[in-house]
Design a protein around this nucleic acid. Structure first.
Length: 653
DNA sequence: ATTAGGG
DNA sequence: CCCTAAT
């Protein structure tokens, strides 16, 4: 059934091209690349403004982007490529001073100088310091994003220290003791440090990159923009169509697609809900899928949940699970104190209105009380952040190990095998006494609250800001105890660009939670129990649920990231996204090479359209110019390579 | 696993 | 960002 495709790998791990086209392709990219790598040369150093070259034969002004270079260089178009290698040595030295043997502290020094240069340039341009691209944005962020959480204080500190350290050649290990970082541990980025565009810049050229620990609390931002996410890509009717029409596919893909169709058909009406976009993925989504349900926008998840429970038969209706502080009346978070304790025990569904009709029992669960939430947040936090934090906690809670309990007349119904009839749930008089509980599911073996999973990048375990005791007290204590014993965050690769956090994922929580819920039933557990107990939901859905995947959250590239990307592409060229990733985004786990490639694509597009048409955080024109220049250069490079290898194609043209 | 492009 | 096809 499944067609097998045999792939051969060469000595270097690359697949061996088997078709003429593949061979050409490999060759096309191979040659030039190799030379660059061997020489450790940045061909872009010699880059002139190709765009200009193409029309005019006049010499082009080549302005080196690296500080310490010989400044300006004039190269004619014809010289560009050929000289690129001939001048390898000189260019290497002049253009990459940080790579010319000063070793050790080279990159650090560069970092400093580069950032200075950047600032200087901008100042000269008459722009205020705050308007600076990456740096400026960071500063702003500091005030709007996490400043409220004592982040700024540390920021400043880092800035200073960093400056000094730049000279000493060693980047300080900075760690906020009072850090309360909720961010996805993967997302580490020293805001202050990265802000200097030089940091990223230097990384491209130096191998021995100094490391620095993530300042940590760069963000409490965590909570993200659900609205953003919800509005940004959930309604794709076309997806459904796709699912149905793709029966022509074969193999696994086909199966999955069909499953999808089935699944959504089974869900009946809910299918019309654009917010529920089924996405099926491989389970082996390496680093690409480190995210988990934690990131599921609450709204979305809630919807899903609701849809789940309310099948087309309408046997059960779960009208809203009011558990948010804002919405609920339980007042779990109504207190304004920094620490909030919800009710220790998970109490029950508040009301259930039921009607018995036919042979079905109809339930209406007006609300669920969230078992327990323990939140710790700086008193300097804003109410808004508190709300978001609570939302986060709730989201995590609902996505975590929960189970539903059924209470009838004050007694818990533990025998899941009994029918409603047998338990009396179907009787009207009993219905009033029926309740549901959401409770921690201790049956799950691993009490995976955080930090306990060593396999989850222990170094990234942040000082938790939010603690979600998914289990009763002992776990909670464990969690707290652990906080004090948090291992020192290790140094992280500072040289490489580290992602920006200001708009980091809502996933705030941490990977442990993520992990705990990643491949689990999250949304499944509860409904399953319900189904079991009430036997109303068709069983077939059960098997498909594990395949549900979530679209990744949208995480706009920050200016600093763009800077790093541009930097890397200038050096490596387009078409080597893996290298770009490794080179400049090694620490930004959520940026895949595909992401980078896509971003470059959009950057090129952005650079071409008028500033008025651009949206989102404005990218400094300087960067866009570099984008166009680099793009033009590498495009031409590619073309030349092709012509070299297939002169016959010239004839065709 | 990567790369290239369309959606 | 996602999805696919081709590498």
């Amino acid at each position: 059934m499944v067609l097998e495709k045999r792939i051969e790998f060469g000595f270097n791990g690359y697949q061996v091209p088997t078709t003429p086209r593949a061979t050409r392709s490999a060759r096309r990219r191979g040659t030039f690349r190799k030379r660059v790598e061997d020489n450790q040369l940045c061909p872009f150093d010699l880059l002139a403004t190709i765009a200009e070259c193409q029309d005019a034969k006049k010499p082009v002004k080549a302005e080196l982007s690296e500080e310490g270079s010989s400044g300006r260089r004039y190269v004619s178009e014809s010289d560009l490529v050929s000289h690129a290698y001939d001048q390898n040595c000189s260019s290497k030295e002049s253009a990459n001073p940080e790579n010319d043997g000063h070793s050790g502290s080279a990159s650090v020094v560069t970092t400093s100088s580069c950032s200075k240069k950047f600032v200087t340039e901008k100042m000269v341009n008459g722009k205020s310091y705050e308007e600076l691209g990456s740096f400026g944005s960071k500063v702003k962020l500091c005030s709007s994003g996490y400043a409220e959480f004592s982040g700024c204080k540390l920021d400043v500190k880092i800035n200073k220290v960093n400056d000094k350290q730049n000279k000493s050649g060693k980047v300080p290990f900075v760690r906020g003791t009072d850090m309360c970082r909720v961010e996805d541990p993967m997302d580490e980025k020293p805001p202050a440090v990265v802000s200097s565009d030089g940091s990223a810049k230097s990384s491209s050229y130096v191998d021995h990159i100094p490391h620095i620990a993530p300042p940590g609390q760069d963000d409490l931002k965590v909570v993200s923009r659900d609205d953003d996410e919800n509005s940004s890509g959930c309604t794709h009717p076309s997806t459904k169509i796709k699912s149905f029409r793709s029966v022509t596919h074969i193999g696994d893909r086909r199966k999955r697609k069909i499953s999808a169709s089935k699944y959504w058909k089974g869900d009946g009406h809910s299918n019309t809900d654009g917010d529920l976009k089924p996405i099926y993925r491989n389970r082996k989504n390496s680093y690409k899928r480190l995210r988990s349900q934690m990131n599921v926008p609450f709204k979305k998840r809630k919807l899903f949940y609701g849809n789940y429970v309310s099948n087309s038969d309408g046997c059960i209706r779960s009208d809203g699970i009011s558990c948010s502080a804002e919405k609920g009346s339980n007042g779990d978070a109504s207190g304004s104190s920094a620490k909030i304790h919800g009710e220790p025990s998970s109490v029950a569904g508040q009301q259930t209105a039921l009607h018995s009709r036919d042979s079905h029992v109809k339930l209406r669960i007006k609300s669920f009380r969230v078992p327990e939430l323990f939140i710790e947040i700086p008193e300097t936090a804003t109410v808004g952040s508190l709300k978001r934090t609570v939302m986060e906690a709730v989201t995590a809670m609902l996505g975590g190990e929960l189970r539903v309990g059924v209470v009838l007349q004050g007694r818990k119904v533990t025998d899941d095998s009994k029918t409603l009839l047998q338990t009396g749930i179907s009787q009207d008089k009993q219905l009033d006494a029926l309740g549901f509980t959401l409770e921690p599911d201790s049956s799950k073996s691993a009490p995976p609250v955080f930090a306990d999973s060593p396999d989850v990048l222990p170094r990234d375990v942040p000082e938790p800001l939010i603690r979600y005791p998914l289990l009763p007290t002992e776990v909670q204590q464990r969690v707290q105890g652990h906080s004090d014993a948090l291992p020192d965050p290790q140094v992280t690769n500072f040289g490489n660009f580290v992602e920006s956090d200001h708009d980091s994922a809502p996933s705030s929580t941490n990977s442990s939670i993520d992990k705990s819920t990643r491949d689990s039933k999250v949304l499944v557990a509860i409904p399953e129990t319900t189904m079991d107990a009430l036997a109303v939901v068709p069983a077939h859905r059960k098997s498909k649920r594990s395949e549900i995947a979530q679209r990744r959250i949208r995480r706009p590239f920050s200016v600093a990231e763009v800077e790093a990307l541009v930097q890397a592409v200038e050096k490596l060229g387009t078409g080597r996204w893996r290298d770009v990733k490794l080179n400049a985004f090694d620490n930004a786990k959520h940026r895949t090479y595909v992401d980078l490639k896509d971003k470059w694509k959009t950057l090129v597009h952005t650079a071409r359209i008028s500033p008025q048409q651009r949206r989102g955080e404005p990218v400094p024109q300087e960067l866009l110019d570099r984008v166009l220049t680099a793009h033009a250069y590498w495009s031409q490079q590619q073309t030349k390579q092709q012509l070299k290898q297939r002169p016959e194609s010239c004839l065709l043209l």
